[in-house]
Simulated assay, not measured.
Amino acid sequence: MTVRPIRLFGDPILRSATDPVRVGAPGIRDLVDDLMDTVREPGRAGVAANQIGVGLRAFSYNVDGEVGYIINPEIVEVRGDRELIDEGCLSVPGLAYPTPRYPYAKVRGVDVDGNEVVLEGEGLMAQALQHETDHLDGTVYVMTLEPATRREALRAIREQDWFH
C-alpha cells in the first residue's frame, strides 16, 4: 500500500485519544497495510495510527525481526519496577530521553478479522508496546518524562527546525 508520513510533535492528533476500531469497518485493512508498510522503514520499532494521521486504535511494530500489528490494544499486564530507558520517537525526530518503562508488558487486542491477539515481551518489545499504546491514548513519550527532563525535552523540541 503506502508508507505514510509521520505526524510530528505539536500536531493535535497526537494529543487526542484514538477511537476504537470497529472490526470489519471499511478501510481497516488498508489502514493496517499502511501501518505495516510504514513500520518497515529502517530504524522503526513501532507506528501508531495517529502518527500517520488516523485517529483509530491500532499500531504496527517491528522488533527484533518480528513485524506485526494489533487493533484495539489494551495493556493487560506490566511487571517489574519502572526503569529509565533511553527512548526516542518518530514524532520527535532526532531526540531521545530517559523514559520510565516497565521491563515487561503484555497487550491484548484483535486482528482485522476480530481474532484475539496477545503481544508480550521484555526489553525493546516491552518498551514498544508501552510507547505505542501511550500514543493511542494521546500521550507522546516526552510528556511522561520526569519534570526536569521534560522541561529540557520541550526546550529542545522548540529549537528543532521541524517544530516550526
Rank of each mutant, 00 (worst) to 15 (best):
T2C: 00
T2H: 02
T2L: 04
V3M: 05
P5V: 14
I6D: 05
I6S: 05
G10A: 07
D11E: 11
R15L: 04
S16Y: 12
S16V: 15
S16D: 10
A17L: 11
T18R: 06
D19I: 07
D19K: 15
D19Q: 12
D19C: 10
P20V: 08
V21S: 08
V21A: 03
V23K: 10
P26W: 04
G27E: 02
I28T: 14
I28R: 06
R29F: 13
D30A: 11
V32M: 02
D33A: 12
D33S: 12
D34K: 07
L35A: 11
M36G: 03
D37E: 15
R40Y: 05
E41P: 01
P42M: 01
P42I: 10
G43H: 00
A45S: 09
A48Y: 06
A48D: 10
A48L: 00
A48C: 08
A49K: 12
Q51R: 10
I52S: 06
G55L: 11
G55K: 12
L56E: 01
F59P: 08
Y61P: 06
N62L: 02
N62Y: 07
E66L: 00
G68L: 00
Y69R: 04
Y69V: 13
I71T: 11
P73R: 04
I75S: 09
I75Y: 11
V76E: 10
V76I: 15
R79S: 03
R79F: 08
R79Q: 12
G80D: 11
G80E: 10
G80P: 05
E83C: 04
L84V: 05
G88Y: 01
G88I: 08
C89K: 10
L90N: 12
L90S: 08
L90A: 11
S91W: 01
P93Y: 03
P93N: 07
L95Y: 11
L95W: 02
A96S: 14
Y97P: 00
Y97E: 01
P98L: 02
T99Q: 07
P100H: 02
Y102P: 03
Y102R: 04
Y102M: 01
P103G: 04
P103H: 07
P103W: 07
P103Y: 09
A105W: 05
K106L: 13
V107E: 12
V107N: 13
G109V: 01
V110S: 08
D111W: 01
V112E: 00
D113P: 09
D113S: 09
G114N: 14
N115V: 01
E116Y: 00
L119S: 13
L119I: 10
E122I: 02
E122M: 03
G123C: 03
G123P: 06
G123V: 10
G123E: 08
A128S: 13
Q130G: 13
H131D: 11
T133E: 09
D134T: 07
H135N: 01
H135Q: 04
L136G: 05
D137R: 00
V140H: 04
P147T: 14
P147R: 12
P147Q: 12
T149W: 02
T149Q: 08
R150Y: 06
R150G: 03
E152G: 08
A153N: 10
R155H: 14
R155E: 15
A156W: 10
A156G: 11
I157V: 13
R158Q: 14
E159H: 11
Q160R: 12
D161M: 12
F163H: 15
H164N: 15
